[in-house]
Design a protein around this nucleic acid. Structure first.
Length: 296
DNA sequence: AAGAACTCCTGTTGGC
DNA sequence: TGCCAACAGGAGTTCT
């Protein structure tokens, strides 16, 4: 489900319920999500206060008052639901409550000192949670090999060119590689490549010169990546199937998709007339306009 | 060794 | 209507 804009949206929704609050009770309904939950997960969280809630790429990190960090990843279908103090728990055996939430997939419940209840729901269980000493975060298995933050200062045409120089992998694959740029996913890569007029199958290295310096297109691409992500964050992310904010409201960036999930529709470029194409790269759908994104 | 394919899991959708 | 293959916002592991 969530790429960077959706994760940032979730962070903003969780912050009021978590920041400065204490985990009063932690209910772990299964031993594992994608990976086993940490040993003694509930005990190690209970009584801890959240000192900060940040995002790095598609990860959420809650700094705890004992020096640990709670690392959370939503995978494809993970979502958090925040309920106000006093909201009665869902009835056992209930199937759905609000939009698309299968209660059978509520896996972790945080009851905060305020009385608010934060539920982690994840149908496909590709998400995970981990507890890591804060001092070890940067070298942890989650972050050690992570690429640059696309909304941070490191993203520039020169940086992109240096990262992609010499690569024969398609641009699409390079942009999805979290070891290079961390936070983009299938939707926003398609949208950024369209806006940049770049063919998704073009070799990543073509944005760089032989010496690894940025060609003009590298600067365009860096600027556009930032622009697309910022617009999507401002729109509260994209709601395709079941993404919802922590308060149940929906993102609306999906209405601004120019190519994603629009196979066979007319390209939005005025006067273009071509139809949006779909192809499969590394097992994932790519949407593009062959007229606006020519092979060079 | 880079790049692609396969894998985890469950639910929905579209074609026959 | 029913069945079943294809597909879904991610990413670690295994192949070639």
């Amino acid at each position: 489900m969530p790429e960077l804009p959706e994760v940032e949206t979730v962070r903003r929704g969780l912050e009021p319920a978590m920041l400065g609050e204490t985990f009063a009770r932690v209910e772990q309904r299964r031993l594992d999500l994608r990976f086993p939950l940490p040993e003694r997960f509930s005990e190690r969280l209970t009584g801890r206060r959240v000192e900060a809630l940040s995002r790095r790429a598609k990860y959420l990190v809650a700094d705890l008052d004992d020096g640990q960090a709670l690392v959370m990843h939503l995978g494809m279908s993970g979502r958090f639901v925040v309920e106000s103090p006093g909201t009665p728990p869902t009835e056992p055996g209930a199937y759905y409550n609000e939009i698309g939430r299968h209660l059978a997939h509520d896996h972790v419940v945080f009851e905060m000192g305020s009385g608010a209840r934060i539920t982690y729901n994840d149908v496909r269980r590709f998400g995970f949670m981990d507890l890591v000493p804060r001092a070890d975060l940067a070298t942890s298995r989650h972050f050690a090999a992570m690429g640059i933050e696309p909304l941070g200062n490191e993203l520039s045409g020169e940086t992109l060119a240096r990262l992609f120089a010499g690569k024969f992998a398609p641009l699409k694959a390079a942009l999805l590689d979290q070891r290079l740029v961390a936070g983009l996913g299938n939707i926003y890569v398609c949208e950024a490549l369209f806006r940049a007029g770049l063919h998704p199958e073009a070799a990543a290295g073509t944005i760089a010169t032989a010496t690894g310096r940025a060609r003009p297109v590298a600067h365009d691409l860096a600027r556009i990546i930032r622009e697309v992500l910022e617009e999507a964050v401002a729109a509260g992310g994209s709601t395709l199937r079941d993404f919802a904010h922590a308060d149940g409201s929906l993102g609306y960036f999906q209405h601004r998709f120019k190519v994603y999930d629009r196979e066979g529709e007319a390209c939005v470029t005025p006067g273009c007339g071509a139809l949006v194409q779909r192809l499969v790269q590394s097992g994932r759908s790519t949407f593009y306009c062959e007229s606006c994104q020519p092979r060079r």
